[in-house]
């Protein structure tokens, strides 16, 4: 494929994507939530950690848009800071998984002798319940930020490894890989300068899509109490806190759950739209 046809194909994909209203909506929602999470300190006059016993469990309205939680903290503020934490865990975890999975995938394609061993391990990881990663790491490292990030990373790693291997294999068949080898470049240069530099687009797309699963896992582990401990604002643990007051103040856990649902749903809709737009290789 020449550069011109590549760009033409990319342009077509983009046009089809823009015509899909669901995709536009999902992207808009994600941008909005991310911006709100980043700008949280500027957007809200309340402190996410300052408690006020006299204003506990207030229903929505009356100075607090979404009401208050069991400690009298403004719920919307908690949710914005919670989204900040949850998205950040998803980001760092996915990044870690992409680094690990990408390396494994590229190495499997580059060193053919390692391929079957590496991919067999990946297959096992692929079907393993991701919550079990969370349980094991929380048991070994203690519940907290590091176990959460490792769990998220390990759960997205196998998918990324498979995609990277597939993408890298098609690059390995290109003539410039042979010519690079012929002029005596070391493996390190071939891997980064030739293989990664050409195979990264589908890896990047898939990694973006894996983000939805990462956020869902992080929130679920947070809900189970295996993630960040209170009072840290994190969407899953806010939902868990609200669980104790489910009948008195259902708005606490509902609002947090809806927030998680909207974020994950938007990512999944984005993924479906990308798939429908014909970018089959990348998903």
């Amino acid at each position: 494929m020449t550069d011109a046809t590549v760009f033409a194909a990319r342009g077509r994909t983009w046009r089809r994507l823009r015509r899909n209203p669901m995709m536009t909506l999902a992207l808009g929602v994600l941008v909005l939530i991310t911006l709100a999470a980043i700008l949280a300190p500027a957007l809200t006059p309340f402190d996410p950690y300052e408690t006020n016993i006299r204003a506990r469990l207030k229903p929505p309205g009356d100075g607090h848009i979404l009401g208050t939680d069991s400690q009298g903290r403004d719920l919307l503020t908690r949710l914005l800071y919670g989204a900040r934490t949850t998205l950040l865990i998803g980001l760092v975890g996915t990044g870690f998984g992409a680094l690990l999975g990408g390396t494994i995938g590229l190495c499997a394609a580059f060193y053919r002798r390692l391929d079957s061993v590496l991919m067999r391990i990946i297959d096992v990881f692929l079907s393993f319940p991701s919550i079990l990663f969370g349980l094991s790491l929380a048991a070994m490292l203690g519940p907290g930020l590091d176990s959460l990030i490792f769990a998220v990373g390990l759960s997205v790693m196998p998918g990324i490894a498979r995609i990277s291997r597939g993408a890298a294999l098609s690059i390995m068949a290109q003539d410039y890989m042979d010519s690079g080898r012929a002029i005596g470049l070391p493996d390190r240069r071939l891997l980064s300068g030739y293989l990664l530099a050409n195979a990264y687009p589908p890896i990047l797309t898939y990694t973006t899509l894996a983000f939805g699963d990462a956020v869902l896992l992080a929130a679920t582990l947070g809900f189970l109490g295996l993630g960040l401990q209170p009072p840290t604002a994190e969407l899953g643990s806010i939902a868990a806190e609200g669980r104790s007051f489910l009948f008195l103040a259902p708005h606490v856990s509902t609002a947090a759950s809806v927030m998680i649902f909207v974020i994950v749903l938007s990512f999944n809709l984005l993924g479906d739209a990308l798939r429908d737009a014909g970018d089959r290789r990348s998903v």
Binding site: R243, L246, S253, S257, I260, V264, L265, N268
Partner: peptide, 21 residues
């Protein structure tokens, strides 16, 4: 099917508990 893979399992449970109670 899109919603099913996006919804947190714990939220489904919490909604059911609220409904049942």
């Amino acid at each position: 099917s899109v919603m099913g893979v996006s919804i947190p399992v714990f939220w489904v449970g919490l909604l059911m508990i609220q409904f049942a109670a």
